[in-house]
């Protein structure tokens, strides 16, 4: 296999090096890619969509159809991971372990038995290890600010680097950080599995639904101009608002899909304490 791999890599590399000889020089302002379509995007975006961040405008409007499917890609990955890994065994295992948080005593509960009524018990797994106090505290302090920043990145995507994907990933990472610093059960208490899964779909649905709404209002799919009468703005601002709506959809979808994929992967689909 090693020799085949080497031969394939060398042949492909040779072809690519051979072809690279004909490329326009790197960073050449006169290359076809820089002179054909991109000047239109750079010069007309503000007139046509009223969004200063050209990447956002191209992403969510000129090529918004790509972006919708990009969100769908991540949603399908979430569904595929869930379908592959999630074990739907009996909800209660035969024996469960609980740890009394104040004393550190571990209690074994047999099948059908009840836990003594107290708030201080924490469900643990056999491979439980104590958590570091410093990490737990620092993360707890950081997470609200991370989430605030995530919301800012989504909302300010029109004017600065950012947008739905970036903000969604930051928001998702905040919950994943909670799962890493505490354990997966703590994170699932905040974002239940069913809620998580449904919100993934709803995020994509916001995007596709906006497009379908444009179609129902009589214009082409994803033509945000159609939203102008609904939003009470002119047709250029309607594009800007349309971009914001779909970016929020993307943010929701990406955030929850990231959490969903993480919880399935880190626990092997068992939804126990995770990593």
């Amino acid at each position: 296999m090693k020799i085949i791999g080497l031969i394939v890599a060398v042949l492909t590399g040779g072809l690519l090096v051979y072809a690279a000889g004909d490329f326009p020089a790197w960073s050449d302002p006169a290359s076809p890619a820089s002179t054909y379509l991109s000047p239109h995007f750079i010069e007309k975006t503000i007139e046509e969509t009223s969004v200063p961040n050209i990447v956002t405008a191209v992403l969510a409007d000129y090529r918004g159809f790509d972006t919708m499917f990009e969100t769908t890609v991540i949603f399908s990955a979430g569904v595929a991971v869930f379908l592959l890994l999630r074990t739907s065994g009996p909800k209660t295992q035969q024996t469960r372990l609980y740890r009394h948080q104040l004393t550190g005593v571990t209690v074994r509960i047999k099948e059908g038995a009840e836990l003594p009524p107290s708030d201080n018990f924490e469900r643990i797994d056999r491979f439980w290890t104590p958590h570091d106090l410093i990490i737990k505290t620092v993360c707890r302090l950081l997470i609200p600010f991370i989430q605030l920043f995530g919301l800012y990145v989504i909302a300010h995507g029109h004017h600065s680097p950012g947008g739905g994907f970036q903000g969604g990933v930051i928001l998702g990472a905040s919950i994943i950080l909670l799962a890493i610093s505490h354990d997966l059960r703590t994170a699932i208490k905040r974002v239940a599995e069913k809620l998580d899964a449904v919100l993934c779909a709803i995020g994509v649905l916001i995007y596709a639904g906006t497009g379908a709404l444009c179609l129902l209002l009589g214009l082409n799919f994803l033509d945000y101009k159609a939203l102008a009468p609904v939003l009470h703005v002119d047709s250029i601002m309607a594009r800007s608002h349309g971009i914001l709506i779909v970016e929020i959809g993307v943010g929701v979808a990406v955030m929850f899909t990231m959490i969903w994929i993480y919880s399935n992967l880190s626990s092997g689909g068992k939804y126990n304490q995770g990593l």
């Binding site: 769908t72 949603f75 069913k194 899964a197 449904v198 779909a201 994509v204 649905l205 596709a208 379908a212």
Partner: peptide
């Protein structure tokens, strides 16, 4: 678009 929307709705309906 119709299968795309249906894919999302089917998934929600599954829950």
């Amino acid at each position: 678009v119709v299968p795309l929307l249906a894919g999302l709705l089917v998934f929600i309906a599954g829950w």
